[in-house]
Design a protein around this nucleic acid. Structure first.
Lengths: 200, 200
DNA sequence: AATAAAAGTTAATCTAGATTAACATCTTTT
DNA sequence: AAAAGATGTTAATCTAGATTAACTTTTATT
């Protein structure tokens, strides 16, 4: 962990600049309040039941966020790659035990915002409160749309939507995880794929 | 529509005070930027395809937010009662056509925030940006939990969860709308209920 | 009070997707 | 390069929940 690796933090600044404009000084404050960190494949960023201490901006690699149910089944709620966010946001906000685990599917580099640091950031740079509000608004919109898709589309339609929306993610992730994300079994996804190859 | 009906706006101020403290002056600014409005049962606050102009705080009554799919089927994504918010937040934020309709199930009183007014409010009272961020964070957490429930619970378990979490809403809403919210048919909900009465 | 419309129930039949299990292929590790 | 583990496929059988349709109860309208 290092407080300052400026060259690693350029992608975050570029990302933020799409939403709001920061002065050089504000960028400096922001960077001083964040931490660069590398995780290896299979390492956990958060474990279900622990308190989630960080929101992470992904620089490289890939993570999955999933919930283990009473039967020990894994339900993936999201994947995160470069330029996305990852955490158990509910746990992070309320500082209560996490409902989800976040695990790296590849070696993954992130920039971490701790709970205390993010409060400081909001105080010192109120513009960033706006930025995070906008990020969360987008996440909420995406989540609501996913609920509607799960009700109104068949599994095949949902899979085709996933392929179209996240072509990069589909390439690098095992099928059984995509099945989990879609809420179906790996066997049924296999069947869907062979139907698609044959021609619907 | 009236710009100032202060006694109607007390519940909103009380609600906000649970999250942040406003001065009397700030309360005045806020109230001057919001509108009180009454809708009759069955009236639409937003129609799918239109641009959603308002976020509404519900003072009394009840609304449903739903999506009509290609087969003309209605999928309810949320109900809103007193002290909740209602709108198509995606459409409101991005000022693009709404994916959802919001319709009143009862005569409903609301306080409306227009898109322009809310931007003014953020500028004049930055604290309220924090407030809305927190509201949206909570909505996101609830939405993610609902996705997990839809994957890991049976329809009966989801219904029991709904009854427990929203006992007030269950009383005042027709069964077929609850079925739509749960993503099942009214016939199957009817079967579930008779199973529960008999004893699981 | 009579009628119509809306909401809810029951039961028979059907289907999307789960489960089980055996097998195939691709990756690591030694 | 062999063995072990992870990932992916195919096929048979099973089930939660959908569909259809006829019927009952409740609520609103005249």
């Amino acid at each position: 962990m290092h407080r300052m690796i400026p060259e690693k933090k350029q992608p975050l600044l570029k990302y933020i600049s799409k939403y709001i404009a920061l002065t050089k000084e504000e960028e400096g404050i922001l960077l001083s309040k964040t931490t660069y960190r590398k995780y290896l494949k299979n390492q956990y960023i958060v474990q279900q039941g622990d308190i989630c201490n960080y929101e992470c901006f992904v620089l490289s690699g890939c993570t999955k966020t999933f919930h283990l149910d009473n039967e020990g089944q894994e339900h993936i709620v999201m994947f995160s790659i470069e330029d996305w966010w990852t955490s158990d946001i509910g746990s992070f906000i309320t500082q209560t035990p996490a409902d989800y685990s976040v695990q790296c599917i590849e070696n993954t580099e992130v920039i971490q915002f701790s709970h205390d640091d993010i409060e400081d950031i909001y105080k010192e740079i109120p513009k960033l409160e706006r930025f995070f509000r906008q990020i969360i608004e987008r996440a909420l919109v995406a989540s609501q749309k996913r609920i509607v898709r799960s009700f109104s589309l068949t599994a095949k339609e949902q899979y085709l939507h996933f392929k179209k929306q996240y072509p990069k993610i589909e390439q690098r992730i095992p099928q059984y995880m995509i099945a989990s994300y879609l809420g179906i079994t790996k066997e049924f996804l296999s069947k869907i794929k062979s139907q698609i190859i044959l021609g619907q």
